[in-house]
C-alpha cells in the first residue's frame, strides 16, 4: 500500500482491483482492470451484455473459483488491503465479509427465519438470542421486518418475487459483511419491487459498501455514487456517477449512453 501515495490522506478503498486480467480457459474475459471501491459508497458496473461486468463482480468474492479453468492471470484484487488470492486467505472468511445477492432471487425452500440465519449458522453461531437479534436486524435493514415479523417461520417461497429478493439481501447482510455485491438484483422484478430495492440501497450504503451490476442505466443514475463502464472486457471509464452520465470523457461511453450501440 505504500506505493499508493493518495492513500495517506483519504481512507484506503475497501476493494481495489489492480491491473487485473481474467481468463476463462484460453479466452480472456477481462483486460487490465483497475478499480477502487470506496467505503460506504454505491458503485455501479454498467455495460452491454457480455462485457464482463458480472465476471468482475464475482472476482471480488472469488465466486469464479467455482468455474473450472477460470482464473486471474495478471494483477491482483485487494479487499480491505489484503490480496484475496494469497494462500493464507480463507474463502469462507472472505465470503463472510463480502456478501453477494444474485440476479435470480433464490431463497432456500426453508423458513424465512432459517434463510436469514443460514450465514450465521454455518459460521457456527448457535446462540438463539444472537440469531434472533441478527434476523430482526437484517430483516429491518432489508425493510421486511414489519411485513414478516409475524410469520418468520413460514416458507420463504410463499413470498412475492420482490420480497424474496429483499429476503436474499437480508440473508446476505446477516453476517455483517463490509462489502455487498449485487448482480443485477432487480432484473427479474416488477417496477414497484425494483423501486423498493433501489430505496433500500441508499439505506444499505450507510452500513455497507455496495457494488452493483446493472444493465439499467437509469438505475445506475438513481442508486450509485460511482459508475464504471465496461466494454468488451475493458474498463472504459470510471468516474463519479453524475460526471460519467453528464460529461463522459470517453467517446465510447458517450455513444453507449446515447444508445448508439448496446
Amino acid at each position: 500500500m505504500s506505493a499508493d501515495s493518495t492513500a495517506q490522506s483519504t481512507p484506503p478503498p475497501v476493494v481495489q482491483v489492480r491491473d487485473m486480467d481474467f481468463c476463462y480457459g484460453a479466452s480472456k474475459a477481462l483486460f487490465d482492470i483497475n478499480l477502487k471501491v470506496e467505503y460506504h459508497r454505491v458503485t455501479a458496473l454498467i455495460g452491454p451484455s457480455g462485457c464482463g461486468k458480472s465476471t468482475l463482480l464475482r472476482c471480488i468474492n472469488r465466486m469464479n473459483d467455482r468455474v473450472p479453468s477460470a482464473r486471474v492471470t495478471k494483477g491482483e484484487v485487494l479487499v480491505k488491503g489484503k490480496n484475496i488470492h494469497d494462500a493464507d486467505v480463507d474463502l469462507t472468511q472472505l465470503r463472510k465479509q463480502v456478501g453477494m445477492v444474485f440476479q435470480k432471487s433464490n431463497p432456500f425452500p426453508k423458513s424465512i427465519y432459517e434463510n436469514v440465519a443460514y450465514g450465521l449458522r454455518i459460521h457456527g453461531e448457535k446462540n438463539k438470542s444472537v440469531l434472533d437479534e441478527a434476523v430482526e436486524r437484517s430483516l429491518t435493514h432489508a425493510a421486511l421486518w414489519e411485513e414478516l415479523k409475524d410469520r418468520l417461520h413460514a416458507n420463504a417461497l410463499a413470498l412475492s418475487g420482490g420480497q424474496q429478493q429483499r429476503l436474499c439481501i437480508a440473508r446476505a447482510i446477516a453476517t455483517v459483511p463490509d462489502v455487498l455485491l449485487m448482480d443485477e438484483p432487480c432484473s427479474a422484478l416488477d417496477p414497484i419491487s425494483t423501486l423498493k430495492i433501489e430505496e433500500l440501497m441508499h439505506q444499505l450504503a450507510r452500513e455497507f459498501t455496495v457494488v452493483i451490476v446493472t444493465h439499467n442505466m437509469q438505475q445506475a443514475v438513481r442508486v450509485s455514487d460511482y459508475t464504471a463502464f465496461l466494454h468488451l472486457g475493458k474498463l472504459v471509464e470510471f468516474a463519479p456517477t453524475e460526471e460519467l452520465f453528464t460529461n463522459p470523457r470517453e467517446k465510447l461511453t458517450d455513444s453507449y449512453l446515447r444508445g448508439t450501440f448496446s
Partner: peptide
C-alpha cells in the same frame, strides 16, 4: 452458489 457466497464450505 448462495450457500458458498455466504461463506459455507
Amino acid at each position: 452458489e448462495t450457500s458458498m457466497a455466504l461463506g459455507a464450505t
